[in-house]
Design a protein around this nucleic acid. Sequence first.
DNA 1: AATGAATGAGAGTTCATTCAT
DNA 2: GATGAATGAACTCTCATTCAT
Lengths: 212, 212, 212, 212
Amino acid sequence: MTELSVLRPAKQRRMTREEKARDTYMRILEAAAQVVGEDGYADASVSKITRLAGVAQGTFYNYFESRQHIFDKLLPHMGQQMLDHIRTAVPAGLTGADREEARLRAFFDYLNRHPAFYRILYEAEIFAPKAHDEHFRVLVEGYRGALNRAVERGEIRGYDEQELEAVIYMLLSARAYLAMRYVHDGRGGTGPIPEHVVDAYVKLVTRGLFGS
Amino acid sequence: MTELSVLRPAKQRRMTREEKARDTYMRILEAAAQVVGEDGYADASVSKITRLAGVAQGTFYNYFESRQHIFDKLLPHMGQQMLDHIRTAVPAGLTGADREEARLRAFFDYLNRHPAFYRILYEAEIFAPKAHDEHFRVLVEGYRGALNRAVERGEIRGYDEQELEAVIYMLLSARAYLAMRYVHDGRGGTGPIPEHVVDAYVKLVTRGLFGS
Amino acid sequence: MTELSVLRPAKQRRMTREEKARDTYMRILEAAAQVVGEDGYADASVSKITRLAGVAQGTFYNYFESRQHIFDKLLPHMGQQMLDHIRTAVPAGLTGADREEARLRAFFDYLNRHPAFYRILYEAEIFAPKAHDEHFRVLVEGYRGALNRAVERGEIRGYDEQELEAVIYMLLSARAYLAMRYVHDGRGGTGPIPEHVVDAYVKLVTRGLFGS
Amino acid sequence: MTELSVLRPAKQRRMTREEKARDTYMRILEAAAQVVGEDGYADASVSKITRLAGVAQGTFYNYFESRQHIFDKLLPHMGQQMLDHIRTAVPAGLTGADREEARLRAFFDYLNRHPAFYRILYEAEIFAPKAHDEHFRVLVEGYRGALNRAVERGEIRGYDEQELEAVIYMLLSARAYLAMRYVHDGRGGTGPIPEHVVDAYVKLVTRGLFGS
DNA sequence: AATGAATGAGAGTTCATTCAT
DNA sequence: GATGAATGAACTCTCATTCAT
């Protein structure tokens, strides 16, 4: 493992103190993301993170109160990126099952581009439960709005509000496990999602939700 | 935490050397299950486990090569219990969506009776990935047989074999997340699954898979 | 803990460079006194002191060579205040045991008004031994003069010069321990000295020194 | 600093496990006493202590919960030795001021033989306050009994019970400060107490307490 | 003169594992 | 086979001090 070159801004004239601080903060955070992505939270020691970030161990504690503290920041940081990616990648006009398909593809696409994200997200359930819950809450709320609109448009029938929440959990979980099974190969590597997996998802959702 | 009394066999006559060894092995394994269930893998120290099992720390290494080793045994041991429970609980004659519903209820029922199992199972993805994969493989194979039969009976249409596998993953994942969300309350405790959650699951599966 | 407002001079016209420096020096010194008084030398970090003084950490080292250095200044600074207080509080005409009693009361009175002083003084034996010795030297010399005059006046008999020094140490030590035992309650708080303690001291000194 | 040879028992036949454990415990405790005696509590690191005791750092924590914990054991351990020494050294028949003198000499004698004790005792006020209080309590109670008997015998007159407690504090404090001033030379070394100091103490106590 | 980010040595503590008894 | 004392590597975190700005 060597120093991160990412995010090291081209040495334009000069950086103000504040900019430099912001830079250091980001370098540590990105280093943590990479280490957790590769080794998991349990093996993400402060020493590994700072070595990768190219700063002294003590510097870590100028920016984060504790090891747990940076873990709690990781998912919010990366999760926002993911949501932005999905929002951008899903065409505005899409509705119904087409929208679902686009979202699934965008999710897998993001995972392929940011292989570290999978571990950061799914281990967070254990190592940063607060952050994980919050992330989930955001996802669920976003979904709820979309499904409610689909109900209003008459695309979805036969589910009351409580049931829809359960459905959202199922759809989110489906994404997660499909990612575990089909995006990740044995160790470390990732690949594009097979078409038949998308087909299965879309079929299940189309019939099951937007049915007949 | 005090010594386990579970599994301490009634002191009939005498135990053969072999029986005693088997007994000690089981005591340690059960103690590990309880500790992991309560504190998670990360905090399940050898010392906690042996203290609970009522043996010396050194004894642990007469039965398990390492801490990781016992973690790898945990899920196979508990997972078999779960499968037995589900198999027993689901009436033989049921097919189609009714069978799915019965399986879901049996799963949640098991979780309620064995609260430790949830952590053992879901943290295994991180702390005992080999065992987790194997456990999943067994579940998937069992499922595959059942769904193939449903296909043969004409209950399921429009999914090829590969797609069915993806569907299985989605159903398994649905269980997992619904458990996380609806069985577990904030800290430690569990409760029965709400009816509307079962309804949503059944509806989605009926329409999506078995649907006309 | 918030910034000290003490000693912040009313913002008259303007401060000369020198005045400002003097002001900063005093602000840091007073902050150190407060922190040591509350948390003890061991927990009086430079960061706590500068935070309380309202200056940057680096500023500290413009005024004091090291943390130890400011500790060495603390007792001389506060000790002088105490001596001034006692000198002022003890009526000029008193002699003999009456004078002793007045001094004891003045000492306890100072302690009650400046609760931080106790820790600064007594922990100095450990954390600033040089300063402690010097402080003691000053006290002893002051005492020696007084007792010598008492000898000359014939109030004290039967002690040679060396013995008188030992007596001085005993009287000073008595003060200290009586303070520890009777002025300080369990944690932090202080109260007036009980009368019977003063009585015991006066009796012992009257009979023992100024005796018969 | 090298390994302690003290207390390493002559290698008689064999040591039972229990004996060996006791031995290790004592070796660590004695090492701690020596380190604290030389460097003070603040600089008595676990690493220094275990190095001197000739055990691994981890071993320390098999015997003491924490660094603070061993500090809390130090004074009780050494204090008992001191009391035993004084009790043994003071002839049984002595009473009144003679007894006081004998006690003072025994105290200084112990200090000379165990130079580490001074720091252990007097820094305990700061670093092991609980132990210090307890030690003081024991000393005071012992004293109180002796003085009460002296009152009954009519050797002491004019002090009520509360006043006598204050007197005890003054006598104990006198010992302590006289030790600081006259037993310890500049750094580390010790010497016998000068006769004139004993004389001063005896004179003060005789006149002040037992005085006709 | 003032700042505050960066440093790095060193602290206390934990714990999986070993091995002589 | 059972024991439990001993180990030592690794961890997180603190903080006095420096120095470029």
